[in-house]
């Protein structure tokens, strides 16, 4: 379990990183926290000729709370974001989801942006980016661009980032006032990739449900958003849980693997959503 030979690049600015990316193209891989990449290299499942290690790039480790979003730089570790009180106050869903990301040792190194760029459908953060209608900021030889979550996730482990582009930050959108959020997942062992998970946002005005939206973990190819506003009904006191569960079951397309069948995951995610709706509305 030793990686194949590679050239290690250590740029100190975004411009240098982009220059290396331009030069090596699809033969390069960005190394940030390395929590997915290093095992893949060690098992020789991938052998890129160049690693562009951005850990020395200045200015990428900041969390910024804005009126409409929380902006997270490419070197912000999960733990840093998890513990950031202002980010939690602005967007509680971040912490609600991040506590489910693996284990502390992994969260201490792994980066939030890296996890999104890896785009594992079993990861927690893609569903959060989707539900918050977030944006990925990419920089490449042709300049900078914003990629909305809806366009960012192309397929399992596949994003709209070009081979020579670097995701320098993401912006998680903030919810309107009166929104309650929650995150629930079930894994075989604590900290494992979830068998199924759900991120949920319900916006209330007085006792009336204005909107209810959900995105999912491990049960959809890409983390698209399911609008449950119709199914859930209007009155917070009596949500239509059966309709919510039906809508979730119809929306997801889970696969069978060695840990659970697709049918089980479908049941599980519907039940997780049903319980999460109940929990959010009883807060």
């Amino acid at each position: 379990m030793k990686p194949a030979p590679f050239v290690h690049h250590a740029p100190t600015t975004v411009a240098e990183a982009v220059e290396v990316l331009r030069a090596v193209g699809s033969h390069g891989k960005i190394l940030a926290g390395g929590q997915s990449l290093i095992p893949i290299l060690s098992m020789r499942l991938a052998s890129p000729e160049h690693l562009i290690d951005i850990n020395g790039v200045a200015g990428l480790d900041r969390i910024e709370v804005r009126d409409d979003c929380v902006r997270v730089g490419a070197l912000v570790r999960h733990t840093q974001l998890l513990q950031d009180e202002s980010a939690y106050a602005a967007l509680p869903l971040l912490r609600q989801a991040l506590v489910h990301v693996a284990h502390p040792a992994i969260r201490n190194r792994g980066t939030t942006v890296g996890s999104l760029a890896h785009a594992d459908a079993a990861g927690e953060l893609p569903s959060v980016l989707a539900l918050t209608e977030g944006v990925v900021e990419a920089v490449g030889p042709r300049g900078s661009r914003d990629i909305p979550a809806s366009a960012f996730f192309v397929g399992p482990l596949e994003t709209a980032l070009a081979a020579d582009e670097l995701a320098v930050a993401v912006r998680f959108g903030r919810f309107p006032e009166g929104t309650r959020t929650g995150f629930a997942e079930s894994a075989r062992r604590s900290g494992d990739y979830a068998l199924a998970g759900v991120a949920l946002a319900i916006t209330l005005q007085d006792k009336v449900i204005r909107s209810a939206r959900a995105s999912f973990v491990s049960v959809t190819d890409v983390p698209d958003v399911l609008d449950l506003s119709g199914a859930i009904g209007s009155y917070a006191a009596v949500p239509d849980l059966d309709a919510v569960a039906d809508a979730v079951r119809a929306h997801v397309s889970p696969d069978t693997d060695i840990h659970a069948t697709g049918d089980y995951r479908r049941m599980l995610v519907a039940e997780l959503t049903r319980r999460l709706v109940t929990e959010l509305l009883s807060r």
């Binding site: 098992m43 075989r188 062992r189 604590s190 900290g191 494992d192 990739y193 060695i258 840990h259």
Partner: peptide, 16 residues
Amino acid sequence: LLNASFMDFLMPYASE
């Protein structure tokens, strides 16, 4: 062997 790693061979953690 489809689960030849500690990711897929589920040895219990202390939490289990």
